[in-house]
Amino acid sequence: MVETITIVLGIVSVLLAFAIGANDETFASVVGVKRLSVRTAVLMGAVIAIIGGFFLSERVGKTLRDNISPGLFDPTKFPDQSPILISIYVAMAISLILASVFGLPISSTEALVGAILGISIAKGNDIIWGWDGMGKVLITWTTSPIIGFTISFLIMKGVRYIVGKSVRSLRQHEKANSVFGVLLLAMVVWTGLSRAGNDINNAIAPIVPLFSEGGDWYQRIPLLIGGIGLGAGLIIIGWRVLKTLGNEVVELTPESAFVTEGSAAMIVFFAVIIGIPVSGTMVLVSAFIGAGVGMNMPINYKTLRMIGIFVVLTPIISGLIAVGCYYAIRGFF
């Protein structure tokens, strides 16, 4: 018999997956350059989210659960799993809301890791700071935006050089746009799969152990419901984000969208394959900046500084909220 708290936490994680899906901007570029309509992009994104979440998220989830703070989600070691999980979810939700109030793109991955660290410290559980645990995560967090920027910048310079040499008329320009449009679609599918594999863990990683007793398919239920939650979020609310970003905010050319998405997809996919929880948002933002610099576009350093500050503060704030919440609610369980 499934416990009531498992059902409640399952619903909470689906809602979180729903919220992440609702705020997913992966398909914005392809809508922005009018390669797909909002409806097609949303449906495609939902299917990709379910597939990516189901097949690619396992290793990242394992790192989050077992490699950062081993045993934190083990009911035999810490029987009070309910306040731990609720505190983590509340911390993530508040951090994301805070960032949204300031209008800054922050990473739910960072918020989750920060909450896990906070609870681990509060509970006195060991944290692996070496390469096998947080070391790998921190190095990836630091290097992934730099790599994202560099790859995006270099690809943009290369693309502009090649296209600048070969495109000498409007007809050729339109042909190049068509080619980049097809390439962009491929890149967006790749990014969607990789990000779903990464992001879905932010919603379901903590509750996976609750489904550990059962067959292989029973253990995969959290991945499936996470994927469905992500897809549903994209379909029900996410279309608004795509419409806003794609039609009103993002001014992208097919080649710049291709470069940005391509660079982000490469990095996130690599991180997902080796099982590191990477911030898809940060990678995408850095890739955007790299492409912008490659196109000799001006950069708003003030906003960039604010994003940088929030990147550093997100895990700290999330960790502190998780600890506060844990001490506030543990008496009820």
Partner: peptide, 8 residues
């Protein structure tokens, strides 16, 4: 019918 919103 085309892509009216794009730059081109």
């Amino acid at each position: 019918q085309g892509q009216v919103d794009t730059k081109t």
